[in-house]
Simulated assay, not measured.
Amino acid sequence: MEIYLVGGAVRDSLLGLTVYDRDYVVVGAQPEQLVQLGYQQVGTDFPVFLHPKSKEEYALARTERKAGTGYTGFICDFGPQVTLEDDLSRRDLTINAIAQSNDGTLIDPYHGQADIAARSLRHVSDAFGEDPLRVLRVARFAARFYHLGFSVAGETQALMQQMAASGELATLTPERVWKETEKALASDHPQVFFEVLRRCNALAVLFPEIDTLFANEAANDSASQPSVAEHTLQALLHCASISSDLACRFAVLCHKLTADTISGLCKRIKVPTEHKELALLASRWHMEVHQLSKPSVAQAKDILALFQATDAWRRPERFAQLLLCAQAESGLSDYPQLIQLWQWFNELKTITAAPFLAQGITGPAIGEAITQARLQRLEQILEGAGD
């Protein structure tokens, strides 16, 4: 029985990145042997075990045969006869198909080290085309490693185009699509994920709502202003530079879509409710926030309506997210509305129901009185600012 460190841990170590998780492959063993050594079996489709002390994952070397559609249509074979090279051959990218023995020796039958040096994301074999999930994974790796200069190899790009045309992407479950998207949104360059998907024609299949933003791109080629799609991806990049909040990043991605389109997208790929709510708010209110760069007394009602409609009084943390979305969409590092709106908000929230209750006002009249008092105070603030 031989044990090798494999996958992301080896890759990230070679890239000089922090290694957080370690996965191992076990060659020349049966499940019973690992159980006898105290490993806990957790895999069902194929044997995966947890180390008795470290709880790190150890998987028996295995091969896979395509036996159906989608990313689950595989038959897994494992046992002492499966070699390390066999196991590595089923992996997605060459940079993920490098193993390391206990003495530090690297086993690299598919030239992953050369592709690391060339900063190339290249598939290991044609078996890559049997798993539609790998299209999303490559796009995610392209986003994750963009800052290191990685790009998708030409032959892998061509294979991904074939996969998009085959119809296999439609077999992906909403949960898997969202999981990969969520990981991509967490990267420093999340816009690359969507750019890669579009180049291989997968964006129209997986995210038709986002793909429609590119519809008029050709007509804008000669324009001095970026197209709607270009602006959206630039805004997404800016959002990633100012906030790690994934709900904000998703909202910025969707801010040019209609409410119905956003709702349909979120329902189809099962986006978390808080992401959907923020996306709807960003789509509806980002322009109103922009227009407050030089506020006047005449805008007092609009400002108050912004606070009211976004439920800022009860959910100030979500209002803060909305302002970050607006700033990201603006492309500005210095966004005065961010400070102004919070100053006004903190001033107006001190106006509460207590004095009106003391006056004997009850029922809906209390809310009306609070709103009117806040409007008057906001008008006073804006008049003072204009002096």
Rank of each mutant, 00 (worst) to 15 (best):
F74T: 05
Q157M: 14
A251G: 03
R11W: 09
S125V: 03
A170H: 12
T181N: 08
G386A: 15
T72L: 12
A143L: 14
D115Q: 02
Q33F: 06
Q41C: 15
Q161P: 10
S125N: 04
A202F: 05
P174Y: 00
H286D: 05
D387R: 14
Q162V: 09
R119F: 02
E182T: 08
R318W: 02
L14D: 04
N216R: 15
V26A: 05
E317R: 11
Q380T: 14
L378Q: 04
K294L: 15
R198K: 07
F78K: 00
R90G: 03
Q191D: 13
S293M: 15
S89T: 09
A170N: 11
E85K: 15
V205H: 09
D21K: 11
E288T: 11
G386Y: 05
S54G: 04
N220H: 14
V228S: 13
D188Q: 13
K66M: 01
G167E: 06
Q327A: 05
A305D: 07
Q33W: 07
A142G: 11
P47Y: 03
G384E: 15
F207V: 10
S330K: 01
H231W: 10
H275I: 10
L257Q: 04
W344I: 06
L50W: 03
V48H: 07
G38F: 07
R65Y: 10
A184N: 04
G149E: 13
L357G: 07
A59M: 10
F250Y: 11
V289K: 02
G386P: 00
L213I: 06
H255K: 10
R318C: 04
L136N: 03
V25Q: 01
L323G: 08
L257G: 01
F49V: 00
Y71V: 15
A251P: 01
P109W: 03
T18S: 12
S333H: 14
K349D: 15
A354F: 10
R377E: 05
N220L: 15
A259W: 10
P47C: 05
G68S: 09
V26P: 00
L34T: 03
V297S: 06
L172P: 00
L185C: 02
L323T: 09
Y335I: 08
L121V: 03
V297L: 08
F345E: 00
V205Y: 08
S13K: 13
D311F: 09
R140H: 12
L206Q: 04
F46G: 04
T350E: 11
V135Y: 02
L357Q: 13
L237R: 15
Q81I: 06
V48L: 09
E274M: 12
F128W: 02
